[in-house]
Design a binder for these strands. Sequence first.
DNA 1: CCGAACCTGGACATGTAATATCCGGATTAT
DNA 2: ATAATCCGGATATTACATGTCCAGGTTCGG
Lengths: 158, 158
Amino acid sequence: MRLGEGVEWTLHCCLTLGWLETDEPVSTAKLAATFDLPPAYLNKRLQTLVRAGVLSSTPGARGGFRLARPPEKITLMEIVAATEGAEYAFRCTEIRQKGAGAERPAHEFQRQCVITTAMRKAELAWRRELASQTLADMLAAAPVAAAERTRDWFDRVG
Amino acid sequence: MRLGEGVEWTLHCCLTLGWLETDEPVSTAKLAATFDLPPAYLNKRLQTLVRAGVLSSTPGARGGFRLARPPEKITLMEIVAATEGAEYAFRCTEIRQKGAGAERPAHEFQRQCVITTAMRKAELAWRRELASQTLADMLAAAPVAAAERTRDWFDRVG
DNA sequence: CCGAACCTGGACATGTAATATCCGGATTAT
DNA sequence: ATAATCCGGATATTACATGTCCAGGTTCGG
Ligand code: SF4
Ligand code: SF4
């Protein structure tokens, strides 16, 4: 099991947007330069965050992205779900109904089996943990120097 | 993020081996037939469980697989980690050290950043949940009819 | 002792999803 | 008007999971 790199990218971008206390939107190009990422593809991931309501975008010259809400109202779960999809990591393909189970009537399989129950329980614990942490929490936990350096860098590259 | 189908396969196989209270090893061919899975590939996944110490195998005619330990001593975490790998789902590629961070000395990045900390915390909750559930728990939670049907089927196919 | 039924592991083929690039269209500041 | 920027479809590339095949070893039963 592996989370896509996009998650790392979008989390970093949200953190960066939180550190820059400006109201100005930040363009894909600048964010991509900040982390040395492919601009076109990063833009796609940012778009998904816009659709998910985490970011808001302004088109046109001097346009870009900004947080759609204050950081206290953005959970890590939202960011992760937006970039990685909201589906469960464990997806049952009902193999119990194949082979030995194929001879039995379908109504026997209505109830969710113990495997799905167990896996889902674990996944809910994961989600609960991510939902309990907000972007504001991360901003507060990070060393202040990191925020300052980010602001400095964005000042310099204009 | 998505768990491979192998997890579903191996969990089902372990459950099946737990239901058959026999001491006889069960061959890959029988397990594959039970769930209509590709035998050669299923065998590979079972081999990884053997290496992980979850199953034990006996070669030769009338050989096959059996649980290496009583079900009370086998956690879901072991089975999942064995088939899916023990690495973390979120893997940091240190993009903070690229772009804006490239100009700064490496020693500034020794400490784990807030993103990794947060993601790891969630993942540990997931693992803890999986580690807290044993194969015996699942065997007990499943309806007795399921166990009986499994035994019946294995009796019939010999 | 022989052959059939098994596991083991390497090499290879296939399929699918994530990553990455490209482009034409729409919107906005200067 | 021009340049900067977001939007999203089409397409290419890459990585990885899935799947097949085969050439070894074991063990059982005759
Ligand atoms: S029995 Fe459970 S794990 Fe297996 S296929 Fe059905 S729902 Fe999925
Ligand atoms: S800053 Fe954190 S999330 Fe980003 S690359 Fe480094 S460890 Fe990973």
